Simulated scan of single mutants.
Amino acid sequence: MGRVKEFDRDHVLHQAMLVFWRKGYEATSIPDLLAAMKLSRSSLYETFTDKETLYVEAIEHYKRTRQSKRDLLTNAKSAREGIRAYFERHIAAAFDEALPGGCLVTNAATDMDSPDEQVRKLIQDRFESLERAFYELLERGQQTGEIDSSKDIRFLALLLLNLNHSINVVAKVNKDKARIVDMMEKVIEML
């Protein structure tokens, strides 16, 4: 009979997520993960099989724990309010010193030279899902007359997706939060 696991899976996944988020997949070593997760090598491999599987699970954990920001788009009373609320929370997180820089998904997309197919699919799904959430909110805005019907909301949704990911990258190298907030306001004015 095998030994009963004596750790909280969500907690150790959260610790692994933070290491991958801070260092990236390539630079994260198994000893880094073992130290952060406070697991033995055998427990790590018995539970997660290998580093790649753990990475995929860490990205899934990230998606689950960061969903509330997306809900700001889905539950918004108006397009502009929803987009502003989303980006205000997004910018606050991007500049939060208690969190690793940027966004785990953006980092994953930019850090891996040739991402594994499963990781690439996760990233692609995340990008498409966010673009779709922006599009649906903009579409509601057009239906209510808040967004001019002549605006190309497919283009605007893609622009907002790119703004989202560029904030993650810029926040890692330029700590001028006011400049990013100003950029967000200018984009909202375009709507």
Score class of each variant (00 low, 15 high):
E97I: 02
K151Y: 07
A108W: 05
R120V: 00
R41C: 08
S150Y: 09
L54M: 12
D32G: 06
L33D: 11
E60L: 14
Q124G: 02
K23H: 04
I147P: 06
L99C: 05
R120G: 03
T110H: 11
F48A: 07
T144R: 08
S129T: 00
I147A: 12
S43M: 02
D148N: 14
D96A: 09
G145S: 01
L54Y: 06
R120C: 05
I123Y: 03
G141C: 11
E128L: 15
L33K: 13
I83M: 12
R41E: 05
R84S: 10
E52S: 13
E146A: 05
L137Y: 11
T28W: 12
E128K: 10
A58K: 12
S43R: 02
S42V: 05
I83R: 10
V56C: 06
Y25H: 13
Q143Y: 06
R120S: 09
E128Q: 12
T28E: 13
F95M: 05
S114I: 12
M37C: 14
Y25M: 15
D116E: 10
H61N: 04
V105R: 07
N107A: 09
A36L: 13
K69M: 01
D125P: 01
V105H: 01
S129W: 04
D96N: 11
V119E: 05
T65I: 03
K51Q: 14
E131L: 11
Q142S: 09
E128M: 12
W21P: 03
F87R: 06
P100C: 07
Y86H: 02
E131N: 11
K151S: 13
D148I: 07
E52K: 15
D116R: 14
G102F: 03
A98K: 14
E26N: 15
